[in-house]
Nucleic acid binder design. Structure first.
Length: 576
RNA sequence: CGGGAUGUAGCGCAGCUUGGUAGCGCACCUCGCUUGGGACGAGGGGGUCGCACGUUCGAAUCGUGUCAUCCCGACCA
C-alpha cells in the first residue's frame, strides 16, 4: 500500500473528548472516528488490526474443535421472555419494536439464540459435545460509555458456547477454552491473568475473567492477586484469610452505654477505647426494592456484589436516610443511622458476614439514638433470624485463601471471560436432548467471550510511548513502512520502490511512504501509527546503505537494501 | 439516573463579562522555496456560532427551554 493512497488522516492534537491513551492514539493516528456516543467507525487501519486479532482467535478456537457460525444481530423478544432475561437485563438491552409492534432487541450476547439453535439441532447425546462460536458486533446500551474502544456501546466480540451432556464434559470444554484464551492473548502480545469473578446477569457458577494487568485509569477492574501462588480474583468476588484481630470485646456483661452523637465506627472505637474489630457494624441496603440489613465486623467493608448474590437480588444500593427512618418507624423505633442494629427490626432480611460469627462480647447498635450495647452475644442479645454469608470486601495485605501468601491489588482490563453456565438457559428454554438411558435432559452449557475491539485497545494501553502506538507485530495493521526521505531524489525513490515491491512479493505487509513530505512528517506519522519496523532510504543510499529501525527500540542499523529485505522477511516468517 | 462541565470551520481553541461586519493555530487548495524528526513565504476556499423560542432596531454574546457530548459514581467483553 502506498501511503499517498492509504485512507488515513492523522491529527496533531489529542481529541478533546478522549481521556485514556488508547482512545487518544486511535483517533490521532486515524484508526477510528466517533459516530455517536460509544459507537465508532473502524477505518481501514483499524479494520486490519481487528482482522488480525479475529484470525488469531479463529485459529485457536478451531484448534479446540469449535465451529464458527453467525447469528443475527437483531433478536426477538419471545426468546428473552423464555430465558427470563427480558425482565432482568435492564436498560443495557436495547429494545425496539418492528412495524407489527413486535418486541425485538439488539443482541448484547447470544445465549438465547444459541440455545434456540441447539434446541432445534441437537436431539441426542451422540451429537455432543459441540462448541459453536461467532465473531460479531454486539450492542449494549451502557449507562456511561467511555474510554473509546474500551467501553463502547457497540463493540466486536467473539462469543462461543459449549454444549455437553454432563458436568464433566462441560468442565473439559471449559478447560479447553481457558487454554485457548491464554494462547490467544499471548499471540496478541498480551500477558493475561485468569481471575475468579462474579458471574453477574449471565448466570452460572464458575467463571474467570482474563485481565491485562495495567495500573492505569483505563483498567476499570480492581484485581486482587497473590504474591506467591496463581490466585487472582476480581474484588467483587475475592476472598481472603483475615489476619489476626481482636474478636472478644472483653466486656463482663451486656450493658447499654450512653454514646452521645457517636455515629462512625472510628469514633465509637475511640469513645469506648476498643478495637474497631469488636464492633458489629449494621448497614441498611435496598436490594431489588427490599430492605436488607448487613452485619459486618467494624474493621471490614461490605462487598455489595457479594451481598446482592447472597440475597439473590439483581440490584443493590445503600439505603437513604429517609428509607432508614421509615424502616425504624415500622418497627417502632426512631433511631438515626449510626445506632441501627438487628434486634427487634421487622420486615427486613438480616445477612451477617462470616466474620461476625466469631465475635464475642461485642458492641452493636440497638436502634436507640445515642446508645449502643456493649458485651453483646449472639443468641442472647441478638436473637432474630440471620443468614451467614461471605459478604466481605477482601483487601490488599490480607492472606491468600489458597496459600500462605498475601494479596496485592492492581487494576486490570478485562479482555475475555469464561463461564460455566450449567443448565440455566437450556432448562429455562426447554433445550433438551435424549441421554444414553433414554432420559430427556437439558444441555450443560458454557459460554466464552473475547472483546476483540477491547483487546486492540488494551494492547495500545500496554504498548505505546510519547510518540504513538507500538503494536505487537502479530496485530499491527502492517509489518513495515519504507520511507524514502526525499521523493525528489531519484536514487532514493527508486531504491525504496524496489524494496517495497520485493517485500510485497515475499508476502510482507508493507507501506511505501511515497508522499512528497519532509522527513519529519513521515517519521512522526510512522511512529504515531505504530508500524513495527521502518526502513529509511536516505542520503546514505549513495553508499548502498539504508536504515533499519524497530519501533520499540531507538537503535538504527545501517545495512544494505538486500539485507533489509531479508531481515524483514525473516521476522515476518516467525510471527505466530 | 444523581453530581459537574462543554457545544463557535475537518481538528484544537479565542471571542460572550460590556449585544453592533465571526477570529486564531493546525489541516485543506494554488504558486514559490525547502527535503533526516510535525519548515518557510505569498495567495485562497470553508462556519445559518448545537437547536428552538423569547428580549432587542440589532443576539455567538442576554433569558427560557431543548438536544448532544464529555468528566465523577452504580452496569459490563
Amino acid at each position: 500500500m502506498k501511503m499517498s493512497q492509504l485512507f488515513v488522516q492523522t491529527l496533531r492534537e489529542d481529541p478533546s473528548d478522549a481521556e485514556v491513551v488508547s482512545h487518544k492514539l486511535l483517533v490521532r493516528a486515524g484508526y477510528i472516528r466517533k459516530l455517536t456516543s460509544g459507537v465508532y467507525n473502524y477505518l481501514p487501519l483499524m479494520q486490519r488490526v481487528l482482522r488480525k486479532i479475529e484470525n488469531i482467535v479463529r485459529e485457536e478456537m478451531d484448534a479446540k474443535g469449535a465451529q464458527e457460525l453467525l447469528m443475527p444481530f437483531v433478536q426477538p423478544e419471545e426468546l428473552w421472555q423464555e430465558s427470563g432475561r427480558w425482565d432482568v437485563y435492564g436498560k443495557e438491552l436495547m429494545r425496539l419494536k418492528d412495524r407489527h409492534d413486535r418486541g425485538m432487541c439488539l443482541g448484547p450476547t447470544h445465549e438465547e439464540v444459541i440455545t434456540f439453535i441447539a434446541r432445534e439441532g441437537i436431539r441426542s447425546y451422540k451429537q455432543l459435545p459441540v462448541n459453536l462460536y461467532q465473531i460479531q458486533s454486539k450492542f449494549r446500551d451502557e449507562i456511561r460509555p467511555r474510554f473509546g474502544l474500551l467501553r463502547g456501546r457497540e463493540f466486536i466480540m467473539k462469543d462461543a458456547y459449549s454444549f455437553d451432556f454432563d458436568q464433566k464434559g462441560m468442565e473439559v470444554a471449559y478447560e479447553k477454552m481457558a487454554d485457548a484464551y491464554t494462547k490467544i492473548f499471548l499471540r496478541c502480545g498480551l500477558e493475561t491473568r485468569a481471575v475468579q469473578s462474579d458471574s453477574g446477569a449471565i448466570g452460572g457458577s464458575v467463571s474467570h475473567e482474563y485481565m491485562v494487568l495495567t495500573n492505569t485509569d483505563a483498567g476499570e477492574n480492581d484485581v486482587l492477586y497473590c504474591d506467591k501462588c496463581s490466585y487472582a480474583a476480581n474484588t467483587n468476588h475475592a476472598t481472603s484469610k483475615m489476619l489476626k484481630a481482636v474478636v472478644d470485646g472483653g466486656f463482663a456483661k451486656a450493658e447499654k452505654v450512653h454514646t452521645p452523637n457517636v455515629k462512625s465506627i472510628d469514633d465509637l472505637a475511640a469513645f469506648l477505647k476498643v478495637e474497631p474489630s469488636v464492633i458489629c457494624k449494621s448497614l441498611v441496603y435496598i436490594a431489588d426494592s427490599k430492605p436488607v440489613l448487613a452485619l459486618i465486623r467494624g474493621d471490614k467493608a461490605v462487598e455489595e456484589v457479594k451481598l446482592m448474590n447472597a440475597v439473590g437480588a439483581n440490584e443493590i444500593r445503600i439505603a437513604t436516610e429517609g428509607e432508614i427512618k421509615e424502616l425504624m418507624a415500622q418497627s417502632g423505633f426512631d433511631a438515626v443511622p449510626g445506632f441501627i442494629g438487628p434486634e427487634g427490626l421487622k420486615g427486613i432480611t438480616v445477612v451477617a458476614d462470616n466474620s461476625v460469627g466469631e465475635l464475642k462480647n461485642f458492641i452493636i447498635g440497638i436502634n436507640e439514638t445515642d446508645y449502643h450495647l456493649v458485651g453483646a452475644n449472639f443468641g442472647v442479645d441478638v436473637t432474630g433470624p440471620c443468614e451467614l454469608h461471605d459478604i466481605r470486601l477482601a483487601q490488599k495485605g490480607e492472606g491468600c485463601p489458597d496459600c500462605d501468601g498475601h494479596l496485592l491489588i492492581t487494576k486490570g482490563i478485562e479482555v475475555g471471560n469464561i463461564f460455566q453456565l450449567g443448565t440455566k438457559y437450556s432448562a429455562a428454554m426447554g433445550a433438551t436432548f435424549t441421554a444414553e438411558n433414554g432420559e430427556e435432559k437439558p444441555f450443560i452449557m458454557g459460554c466464552y467471550g473475547i472483546g476483540i475491539t477491547r483487546t486492540a485497545a488494551a494492547a495500545i494501553e500496554r504498548y505505546h510511548d510519547d510518540w504513538g502506538i507500538i503494536w505487537p507485530i502479530a496485530i499491527a495493521p502492517y509489518h513495515v513502512v519504507v520511507t524514502p526521505v526525499n521523493v525528489k531524489d531519484e536514487q532514493q525513490i527508486e531504491t525504496a520502490q524496489k524494496i517495497y515491491e520485493e517485500l510485497k512479493i515475499q508476502g510482507v505487509e508493507v507501506v511505501l511512504d511515497d508522499r512528497d513530505e519532509r522527513a519529519g512528517v513521515k517519521f512522526k506519522d510512522a511512529d504515531l501509527i505504530g508500524f513495527p519496523y521502518r526502513i529509511t532510504v536516505g542520503k546514505t543510499i549513495t553508499e548502498g546503505l539504508v536504515e533499519f529501525k524497530a519501533r520499540n527500540s531507538s537503535d538504527i542499523q545501517k545495512i544494505s537494501a538486500d539485507d533489509a529485505v531479508s531481515k524483514i522477511v525473516e521476522i515476518v516468517k516467525n510471527i505466530k
